[in-house]
Design a protein around this nucleic acid. Structure first.
Length: 474
DNA sequence: TGATTGTTCTG
DNA sequence: AGAACAATC
């Protein structure tokens, strides 16, 4: 009998509940399986860069599993429904006892899993599902009324009290599997396949699990102490940059929080300020996942607040394109958008500034921006991306009130005081004084070849206020 | 996890 | 004039 462990968005061998369960003893052999559903991923909006990185992560996983004596069957399936057929063939070819996997919470993924479980029933294969994306599974954190939380602060309070200032230790990696346990059928199946072609590695984003562990310890050994003070400064590299590893499951949130908890004198809050603040960000991550599960409309391009569906978005394609390319004439916005294109990543403060600029100053539907970020980001994650966008657009559960509109120039002066980040991505402005970099004069723009502002701040702000006000207070 | 505007208080 | 504050968006 063979146990399957299905890797989906958890490309790691450490702290992987499904993998550990499949290797709980040596009674049966264990085969890892994963499906490369490129068309499905594109349909979900992932871009080239991220898809390439997933393939790289799969190849890395392949090598890690090899060291553990666990073969990985990589199947290229196109769409989810194709992967179901492909799984059927595997179940037909092998004597499978069980299928183990860690749960994905997005709607298409859940539907796929429902039909896969049905398929397993047909073949008398038991299915074991595990929560690995949150420390407290979605649904476990509820108000006294037994409702899901809609507001962050009370969610956080409740989350912390349920955790009781404790964080369970990560699971580690399973013991290696002896090669003689592997059944002939599995060997035949594996030998029949060719591996996923090695993709070009991305110098900025390592998919290697051990490198991620190193970065985590490094961050929590020193950088985190300045996290509270530096995390809002895009030029400072004050953030962990671990969102990518979390998004692909190269790291688990438990590994992150447990390491932080240890460094924080075994506290989840009320300890060192930097560590507290970082853990708080990870609780935001849990919050958005819990929301996604509690409110399925979030998976279907719906606003959390239905009344905001009436906002008269302008949806001007050429304005949108200028925003995407970083040609709005607001330096902090443009530098940020160029960082996204350059790195497949954007600093969190800049995500808020650019998102608010698109939805408020340009009055363009948050879904356009959400899709662009999702395509470009190496850390693209439906729950967090949607949560952030709906926060900025004031359509979300616990969003910014619609009248809280960032002034991009003020944000720039506050968080990029010397204009160093702006200079990094807009070298044409390098010669300007720090003061001018935040918003160059008309003369300075034409002198250095920088475009004119796409909208005038004050009138754009008023346009957005009016649009929201008429919609929400009608 | 704001910004703006108008008012009062300070020097 | 400019800080400090409150009301409003």
């Amino acid at each position: 009998m063979t146990r399957l462990v299905w890797f989906r968005n958890d490309f790691r061998v450490h702290d992987n509940p499904a993998l550990m369960h499949a290797r709980r003893d040596n009674e049966e052999d264990c085969l890892a399986i994963t499906f490369v559903c490129e068309s499905q991923w594109r349909r979900h909006g992932l871009g080239d860069r991220r898809i390439n990185l997933i393939k790289q992560a799969i190849n890395g996983l392949h090598r890690s599993l090899e060291k553990l004596g666990i073969p990985l069957l990589v199947i290229q399936s196109d769409l989810f429904k194709d992967s179901e057929n492909d799984l059927r063939h595997v179940l037909g070819a092998l004597d499978v006892s069980e299928l183990n996997y860690n749960i994905e919470y997005e709607i298409n993924e859940r539907h796929r899993d429902i039909s896969v479980c049905r398929l397993c029933q047909e073949y008398e294969v038991s299915t074991n599902k595990f929560h690995d994306q949150c420390l407290l599974a979605p649904g476990e954190v509820r108000t006294q009324n037994n409702d899901p939380y809609r507001v962050y602060s009370p969610f956080r309070r409740s989350w912390l009290s349920l955790m009781q200032d404790y964080c369970p230790a990560p699971l580690g990696a399973p013991a290696p599997q002896a090669s003689d346990i592997i059944s002939a059928a599995v060997s035949d199946l594996i030998n029949d396949r060719h591996a996923l072609p090695e993709s070009v590695s991305d110098p900025l984003w390592s998919t290697d699990e051990n490198t991620a562990h190193q970065r985590l310890s490094e961050f929590l050994d020193s950088d985190v102490l300045r996290y509270h003070d530096l995390r809002d400064l895009p030029d400072a590299e004050g953030t962990s940059r671990l969102s990518f590893h979390l998004a692909l499951g190269i790291l688990s949130p438990r590994q992150c929080i447990h390491t932080a908890w240890q460094r924080n004198n075994c506290m989840l809050s009320g300890g060192e300020q930097g560590i507290d603040t970082w853990i708080n960000e990870l609780i935001w991550r849990e919050f958005y996942r819990h929301l996604l599960v509690a409110y399925p409309q979030l998976c279907k391009h719906k606003a959390f607040k239905p009344e905001t569906e009436g906002v008269p978005w302008r949806n001007n394609k050429s304005d949108f394109d200028r925003w995407c390319r970083g040609e709005t004439g607001y330096p902090i916005v443009d530098a940020a958008m160029k960082q996204l294109l350059d790195q497949g990543w954007m600093h969190n403060r800049l995500r808020m500034i650019t998102a608010m600029f698109l939805t408020k100053h340009l009055l363009i539907d948050w879904r356009w921006g959400e899709a662009w970020f999702f395509e470009q980001l190496v850390d693209a994650d439906l729950a967090s991306n949607n949560g952030g966008w709906q926060w900025s657009a004031s359509t979300g559960a616990d969003g910014a009130p619609y009248f809280r509109i960032f002034n991009p120039t003020t944000q720039s002066e506050k968080f990029d005081k010397q204009g160093l980040f702006i200079s990094r991505y807009l070298p044409e402005l390098a010669k300007l004084s720090a003061k001018s970099k935040h918003f160059p004069s008309a003369g300075e723009r034409s002198l250095y070849g920088y475009c004119d502002p796409i909208v005038e701040h004050k009138s754009a702000r008023e346009r957005a206020l009016t649009a929201f006000k008429q919609t929400l207070e009608a």
